[in-house]
Every structure is written in C-alpha cells, then in structure tokens.
C-alpha cells in the first residue's frame, strides 16, 4: 500500500512539474539543450551580476538550463566573435552593450563583426552617463570647467575609445584641449577622479550616490536626453557635440535565428528584467529596466554602427 501511495505521489508531483513547464514556455518553443549565456563583462562586477541574475530567473521561470560563461575583453568584441559561429538555434546568447556592436565593432574592422551577423533580443537597462567632477573642484556649471581648462589642460577620464572620441569633440567644441586618460571601466574613472589623477570623467551611473550626497557633480549629460538625477545639466548637444553616449545592456544571439526561438528567449529575458530577481538589481544599479526589442532594436543597433564611422571621421 505504502509503495502504491509513494508511486501515486511521485506521479502527481511529476505531472505538476511538467504542467508548470508547459505554462512557462507559452510559445511552445524549447531549447534543444542547455543555453550558453556569454557574458562580456568581468566576473563580479555590476553587469556580470545582472547577467547571472537574469540567467537564474530564466532557469527558474522556464526550466531551461542556462550556463553563464565569461568571454571578456576588447569592449565586447571577443564575446561577439565567440558567439558569431555558434548555432543559431537558441542555445547560445550573449550579453554585451550596444557600443560593442556599434562603435567597437566598427573600430575593430578586421574582426569582421557587423550588426547583421546577429539577432538582437532585447536591451535590459540604459546608462545614466554623465560628465562628472568632484564637488570640491568648485565648478557649479560646465562653463566653470571650461574656464578652468583654459588656464591649464584638464585630465578627462574615459572608459572606452568611443567616449575618448566624445571627450575630444567636447573639448574641440568648447575651444579647449583635454588630456584624455582612458582607463578600464567606470569604477576606474571614479577612483581616478577621487584620487585626483583625473579632473573630470565619464561615469555611467556609478556616480549616483556621490551626486546625491553632494561629493560629486554631474556637470553635463552625455546622453541625448538630460540626466534623471541632474535634469538641469546641459546635454552634449547643448554643448555643441552632435554625437552622444546613449547606450544599453543588450542580449544578442547569432544571426538567422528562428523567430519562435527569438521570441521565446526575448520574452524570458524581458520577464526577468521586469519582474525577476534581476529587476530589483537593475532598478538599484541602473535606474530601472529598459527593454527595446524586435525591429526597433535592430534599427537601433544598425544606426549605432553607422553613427560610429561618422564619429570616427569627425575626430580625424
């Protein structure tokens, strides 16, 4: 009797589990095996944490096995190169930034990476990219900074070649020359500005707490829109630069992917970014989820890639 009861309980449990699975992947698509999630960011950082939480969320919600793997370096180009030749059946995806497929792909011309090689799934969050300095510099507006730069070259910290180009154009538009110091990652810009190794620099959200406490100042928005935290700071366009640092974390898959797979993966990631464990983290670190998908995302990636060559020509 006991044995029969046990079998019955087991069968019941199994059927509930499989029913839950069927509900979760509503589109009916299922990966043919574990999904490899390539992460283009160093282990342990904010971006990596976000990706791993999303992986956990997807696994919990759908039952698909997601295996995160780090492929770092070259501003996401290494990750894209690794992804490019993987099967386009939904078993391989990567998290990079839009800049990886835009400026970085264009700059790494000989690597042979173009947006059309990839299927964009969805963005997860944007950056609040500002031009930031320490409050004790005494600059209350960008004009003060320029006045100081006219007395002696200021050091401008950046964290990617694209941002270095933008810093150069910003100086040119304002009639000053910055000594542009490119470092690895926003944390390094923050440390440099704090230690006095740099006078100002680009920070993509990491400055939030410091600006709130009054130790740091957002002098300008590097985006096409004003910063949420400092809406009065001028944008790069206001300062005479026709390019901007708009950018997002984005999931991509190899090109030529089946629509059902693309839709199912996109839906799973969007769900994680909006409601999963990842959503709380994204809210805290990046000011909330931004999920641009489908043809809108394709257009965004293509236009970023094309704008990159214009930007590179502008600094020549």
């Amino acid at each position: 009797m006991k044995a029969i009861l046990k079998t019955f309980a087991l069968t019941a449990a199994l059927s509930i589990v499989s029913a839950a699975g069927a509900v979760a992947d509503g589109t009916g698509w299922k990966p043919s095996g574990p999904i490899k999630m390539i992460i283009a960011f160093a282990a342990g950082g904010g971006a990596d944490t976000q990706a791993r939480l999303i992986a956990d969320d997807i696994q919990a919600a759908t039952g698909w096995e997601v295996i995160p793997e780090q492929v770092t370096g070259k501003g996401g180009v290494n990750a894209l190169l690794a992804l490019k030749d993987m099967p386009a059946d939904g078993t391989a995806i990567a998290m990079v930034v839009t800049e990886s497929l835009g400026y970085n792909a264009a700059a790494a011309g000989n690597a042979g990476i173009v947006p059309s090689d990839f299927a964009g799934l969805t963005t997860t969050a944007g950056f609040q990219m500002g031009v930031v300095a320490k409050a004790d510099k005494g600059w209350s507006s960008f004009a003060d900074t320029i006045a100081a730069a006219k007395e002696g070259n200021l050091r401008f910290g950046t964290m990617s070649p694209k941002l270095s180009d933008l810093a150069f154009l910003l100086g040119e538009a304002q009639g000053v020359e910055f000594n542009i110091v490119q470092v690895a990652g926003g944390k390094a810009v923050m440390n440099g500005v704090q230690a006095g190794d740099m006078d100002l620099g680009f920070m993509a959200g990491i400055q939030g707490k410091g600006v709130a406490s009054g130790d740091l100042v957002n002098l300008a928005s590097a985006l096409s829109e004003p910063l949420v935290q400092t809406p009065d700071a001028p944008t790069l366009a206001d300062l005479g630069v026709q390019f901007n640092a708009d950018g997002y974390f984005v999931f991509v898959a190899p090109g030529g992917m089946d629509t059902a797979a693309r839709d199912a993966l996109t839906a799973a990631i969007v769900e994680a970014a909006n409601n999963g464990k990842a959503s709380a983290m994204i809210e805290k670190a990046f000011g909330g989820a931004v999920t641009i998908q489908g043809s809108e995302l394709d257009a965004l990636l293509q236009s970023d890639y094309e704008a990159a060559s214009e930007l590179m020509q502008a600094v020549q």
């Binding site: 923050m190 440390n191 500005v193 704090q194 230690a195 410091g210 406490s213 130790d215 740091l216």
Partner: peptide
C-alpha cells in the same frame, strides 16, 4: 590605495 579611502569615493555617509 583606493581600498583605504573613507567613503569609497562615493560620499562620507557611505
């Protein structure tokens, strides 16, 4: 050196 900075470069309250 940044390890030993009070406030971690973010603010004295942090």
């Amino acid at each position: 050196p940044s390890v030993f900075r009070l406030g971690g470069g973010i603010g004295d309250s942090v």
